[in-house]
Nucleic acid binder design. Structure first.
Lengths: 238, 238
DNA sequence: CACGCGCATTGACATGGCTCAAGAAATCCC
DNA sequence: GGGATTTCTTGAGCCATGTCAATGCGCGTG
């Protein structure tokens, strides 16, 4: 594991209580005392853009909560083909989908900040706080449902439908209304590897959406969606 | 919900204790007393081949353990495109990947037998038995890892690699050694919809494998695999 | 045991998305 | 702020897999 580690010395508890993702992250179900107990084993990590947090196959010694920035999860085949299995936003928990070793590689898309917990301490805490385990199970359920959704995207949707689905999902995750302005922290290659397409197809499809007025592109990574319903109609959302 | 329900009257507890999947299913972590408590709200259902257990979008009132036969989970797009998100074998638990409504349709592939629990009673039991919740979380983790694996298959593998991966996975799930004889409870269309292919491509790929001696087909649904490692080499398993 | 139906296989052709290649536009960095 | 670098876009041609259509075969049924 890499990244600039920081012992969360004196300011530890204040860090959690003032935490920007306090209402989003798994720890939202904890009381102040429980939070204090859990945070005793917590450290903070900062990653630079592109920096890996861990690699597929590494022994899974830690679990994480992303408090700032964005992460990319991916799996690699021997010949270099890559599948991005997910993007993490602030508040997301990282530590459900692995066994003894990490099953995917996690890398920072931009400057990212994480809380990290030794797995042993975390599981120990889990065993003593069933309500916390319940919260994790709820997240796992939600991720499973999302994973099935993604299977539908990858198995049965066209390139247009895949990109439209992706943009609509992102917009919804950001909690925006009928119109939306999205910032994409990931590049075209990441989107392609997430959607099972090539960079060229993603780019062409973006251009097609632009020509049709479904999106307006500003720079590389800002997407205006004038009508979310109209884009959703392209997404074949059942 | 359909299916022939049977109140598990007098023989209820013996049913669980003698259960063929006792060592496989989630209830393996329960003590005899806990088992008795849980089984109080249990009913048994039998399904005929092709019969649905529930449909995508139905309110999720129950959770299940499959004790005999096989199930297919699938999601449908408005125009009829279908993605099979999984096949269930005896011992599998059904009730992790949904929220208030079922996110997939579950149908019997052959004559299937299930234990069914009202969701409220089940969650109530869960709240009082953290060890049981822990077991469910472990299953959820495992399913999440499997779902990511399937994303890699659907997003990045060729038709040959997909079919080879599927057969190797099935063989491993059956716990067979270097050679294997598989019975496929699902048809070619189910396999196609699971792998994001068409029936024709699945059939052609089976035939190619047969010509190359990777498999021997006996009838429609029996597959001999003379060398699992050789088939695994075709599967691009990282 | 033969019939007929549904599922599987095979063939011929079409096409969506991939590959390879060039040029344009951001972004980085000094 | 300008040149280098990386990323993105666009174009042309191709190929793996899809589509459409015909035939074959296993299995349940009478």
């Amino acid at each position: 594991m890499s990244g600039r580690e920081q012992a969360a010395c004196c300011g530890r508890i204040e860090t959690c209580e003032r935490c920007g993702v306090r209402g989003l992250a798994v720890c939202r179900v904890l009381s102040p005392e429980e939070l204090r107990e859990l945070s005793r084993s917590m450290r903070t990590i900062e990653l630079e853009p592109g920096e890996p947090l861990f690699h597929e196959g590494d022994p899974a010694h830690s679990v994480f909560t992303l408090t700032g920035g964005h992460l990319r999860l991916s799996r690699l085949l021997a010949d270099g083909r890559r599948q991005v299995t997910g993007f993490l936003l602030p508040g997301d928990f990282l530590g459900l989908a692995f066994r003894d070793t990490y099953v995917a590689t996690a890398e920072a898309l931009d400057a990212a900040v994480l809380c990290t917990f030794p797995r042993t301490a975390f599981e120990d805490f889990l065993a003593r706080h069933p309500r916390f385990e319940h919260e994790l199970l709820a997240r796992a359920r939600s991720e499973l449902a999302a994973a099935q959704e993604q299977m539908l995207v990858l198995g049965r949707k066209t390139a247009r439908e895949r990109l439209a689905t992706f943009l609509v999902q992102l917009a919804r995750r950001h909690g925006t209304g009928g119109r939306a302005v999205l910032h994409l922290p990931m590049g075209r290659a990441d989107i392609a590897d997430y959607l099972g397409l090539t960079v060229e197809t993603v780019s062409r499809t973006f251009s097609a959406f632009r020509r049709e007025g479904l999106v307006r592109l500003e720079g590389r990574s800002t997407v205006h969606i004038p009508s979310l319903p109209r884009l959703a109609a392209e997404a074949a959302l059942e």
